[in-house]
Design a protein around this nucleic acid. Structure first.
Length: 140
DNA sequence: GCCAACGTTGGC
DNA sequence: GCCAACGTTGGC
């Protein structure tokens, strides 16, 4: 299984909205960046991801699961752009802030810390466990 | 609200 | 194919 991280501004698409979608989940649409899209193309059903609120909160707030692999983005008439579908699995007991990640020596290689502009990123298994641990949250 | 970093566009 | 100009993201 692979691990990922999805960024969203809470004003645009929040964790609460994702949770409200339940098991049906929702398209992760609107990505207009090739690196982010390429990451989504590598996702498999059952992969897990962090849900991160950028800009205002800057913290990991929940865990999601990939429920549909890359398909054309329904919000644009341009075949270049694809997206996956995700559903909420569980919220973080304690949100893990960007500042916490930056302070943790073990996370200094994390894409979140080093490439702030990438909106869909890979997370290593070790990083996954560390962040879940920091958030007192079940990593499974 | 500002601005640095980055990605994309388009003229040449 | 290069690179300047521009637009957007996201941390601070």
């Amino acid at each position: 299984m692979n691990y990922w991280l999805f960024k969203s501004e809470a004003e645009v698409w929040s964790w609460d909205q994702q949770v409200a979608k339940g098991d049906e989940g929702e398209e992760w649409d609107g990505v207009r960046n090739y690196q982010a899209r390429n990451n989504m193309r590598q996702m498999k059903i059952g992969d897990r991801g962090f849900f991160y609120h950028s800009r205002a909160e800057k913290e990991v707030v929940g865990i999601v699961e990939i429920i549909a692999e890359a398909h054309p983005d329904s919000t644009i008439d341009d075949t270049r752009w694809e997206c996956v579908d995700i559903k909420a699995i569980r919220p973080f007991q304690t949100p893990v802030s960007l500042a916490m990640c930056k302070q943790d020596e073990r996370l200094k290689e994390m894409v979140l810390v080093n490439n702030t502009r990438l909106s869909v990123q890979p997370v290593s298994e070790a990083e996954w466990k560390i962040v879940c641990d920091l958030g007192n949250t079940d990593p499974s």
